[in-house]
Computed example of a mutant assay.
Amino acid sequence: MAASEEESWRTYASDYIGLVLLLIGYLLIQFFVEPFHRMFSLNDLRISFPHATVERVPLTHDFLYALFLPLALVTAINLATRAPPHKHHVTLLPLVIALVLTSFLTDTIKNTVGRPRPDLLARCAPRKGTPERTLLTIDACTQTDHHTLHDGWRSFPSGHSSFSFAGLGFLSLFLAGQLQIFKHAPHGSVVGHTEKVVRGDLLRALVCGAPLLGATMIAISRCQDYRHDVWDVTVGGLLGWTVAYWSYRRYWPRLSSGRCEEPYEGPVGGGAGEGGYGRVRDEEEGGGAGEIM
């Protein structure tokens, strides 16, 4: 099912253009956009937690776990299995797209919602004598560090959670496809869509689930550091997982496919039919009732 090695990466030009635009949009948000500042009060216990100067999973570690580790593992697996260039390409490209798109969506929502973090008061350092039972604005704060102060209104959703579930979630999907833990093997008459379900053993299933456990622990650490509450990390995790699955399925068959370990041939112009990527029919995938992802 792999495309010819002579396939030009130019057939994916629109994907790369979109990726660059997303990256530019993300950088513009980072450098030029400040969050909406919701009003707050000093007697709100939900935003009265201490500010952790040392995080359990700092941003650099989140990049290590959710970006560099998945990149290294999927590349190593493809090298070990002597995958053709096309398979390398459509493994790395959707992984990067998932991470960049997730970051763009997360920061767009963060800045629009402007929800205070659980440690907002510690970041704000309100002026002495500020009334407790009054709604306050950011003008009541004495914090001079720009990032520390304004980042206090970027609680929803959790960026660590969405980023980790995008990268590690994609890794989990890739492993599930390569190890074929949900594969439906055609059996008997193809016309009648009769098939035999072949389930992977528990060990392989645990290997595929390990990245999701890692992403979950990263999300939990954000609550432990009082950077987010449970709703922030839950929505962030769901956002990252959804984007990871969406990005994976643009290039790979569903996990129950009889060819789940091989990517689609390519986009329109690369040997595919009209209307989308080179997807095979359900009966060729080993599809039918009871699809899994």
Rank of each mutant, 00 (worst) to 15 (best):
W241M: 15
W153N: 05
Y12I: 04
S14F: 08
S48K: 02
V113H: 06
Q30K: 14
W153L: 15
G269A: 10
F182I: 15
V54L: 09
L73Y: 04
N78S: 10
P263C: 11
L67E: 03
G152Q: 04
D232P: 00
T102C: 13
G290S: 09
Q143K: 13
K183Q: 15
D282R: 04
L99S: 01
K128W: 07
V191P: 02
V96M: 13
V190I: 13
L73S: 04
A125Q: 12
L121C: 05
H37K: 14
E284C: 07
V20L: 15
H160Y: 11
E195P: 01
P126K: 10
T106K: 05
G270Y: 03
A215L: 13
V235H: 04
G290K: 06
L71W: 02
A289E: 15
W231A: 11
Q180F: 04
L175C: 10
S256L: 12
G237R: 03
L255D: 07
T91E: 06
G275P: 06
L136E: 11
H146N: 13
S155R: 01
L69P: 00
P186N: 10
P126W: 07
H61W: 07
F63V: 10
L69C: 05
P118Q: 03
A98G: 02
S247C: 15
R254K: 12
L42D: 02
H88C: 07
T108Y: 09
S161A: 15
L93H: 00
L28D: 04
G278A: 13
H146E: 13
A140S: 15
V74N: 01
T91S: 14
P267L: 10
F49P: 00
G288S: 12
S4Y: 03
Y226C: 07
A83V: 02
D282E: 14
V230R: 09
D119A: 01
G288M: 11
S161L: 14
L173G: 00
G270S: 14
F63D: 08
L206Q: 10
H86C: 08
P126L: 12
Y264S: 02
S221F: 01
T137V: 12
L120A: 01
L175R: 02
G192C: 08
F40A: 01
Y226N: 11
R222F: 07
G276D: 05
T81I: 12
G236R: 02
G287C: 03
G278T: 03
H146F: 11
T108P: 04
I47E: 00
M1L: 11
L239A: 04
E7P: 02
F32Q: 12
L79T: 09
M293Q: 10
H146P: 06
V190F: 08
L238T: 07
A140T: 14
T81S: 14
G188P: 10
F156Y: 12
F36P: 05
L45A: 08
R46V: 06
S247N: 04
A205H: 07
A52S: 08
W231P: 01
Q30V: 08
L171Y: 02
P131I: 14
A185L: 12
R123Y: 05
